[in-house]
Design a protein around this nucleic acid. Sequence first.
DNA 1: CAGACACATAAGTCCGTGCTTATGTGTCTG
DNA 2: CAGACACATAAGCACGGACTTATGTGTCTG
Lengths: 105, 105
Amino acid sequence: MMENDIFKALADPTRRTIFEKLASSQSMNASALRNGMSISQPAMSQHLAVLRQAKLVDEERQGRFVHYRVNPDGLALIVQWVARYSTFWPDRIDALRQTLKEMDQ
Amino acid sequence: MMENDIFKALADPTRRTIFEKLASSQSMNASALRNGMSISQPAMSQHLAVLRQAKLVDEERQGRFVHYRVNPDGLALIVQWVARYSTFWPDRIDALRQTLKEMDQ
DNA sequence: CAGACACATAAGTCCGTGCTTATGTGTCTG
DNA sequence: CAGACACATAAGCACGGACTTATGTGTCTG
């Protein structure tokens, strides 16, 4: 199941770090992502494969580099999942509304 | 880290099922949760311990029963995490806004 | 074309984790 | 108080997953 792939992909802190790095940049290749992370090249490649399979990132080959970027639709399932259960708690959904409002500024 | 506990807790499909059952009811004891799930009593107890440690559920002892219920604040960290990265994609955040709007009716 | 480079894949190891059976703890009831 | 009941904990096992080293694949450059 796809929802399961996403949760499992995000369960690993290293993969969340990689995802956050990608989210804070337009795109990065695998080597650039390794900067500042004590992680081997194969490990990075394997993590990216997991994120790719979960459709959380897209890849684009340019010559011998592969540029990775966040897939904008990737987190949609998580958002829907959370929103589904948030309906039971008006307080929480209000907090989310507030977060969105602050993001407008 | 707490955020890590939540992601790891939700990474297991059985625990997500348990969480969903709790979310769709006021409260349930461990035995009631097992209904319809082919899962042993210790396994259920262990899953509930993980959800409890991640602060996704609360427990309340009443006699020899322990009633479990969803902790309304539990998903807050996930919501914040998702919302943080959603800022990069206006389309997605608009979809979330739409979801919230529909929930108003 | 040969070598360097960016990345993927293979294969093996180790540890976390989800399950089991067995037993312990606490509470209710006859 | 003895037994039944609800749940937790202990201990062992089996599997998955995150890492390693080694090697393969594709691309650029001199």
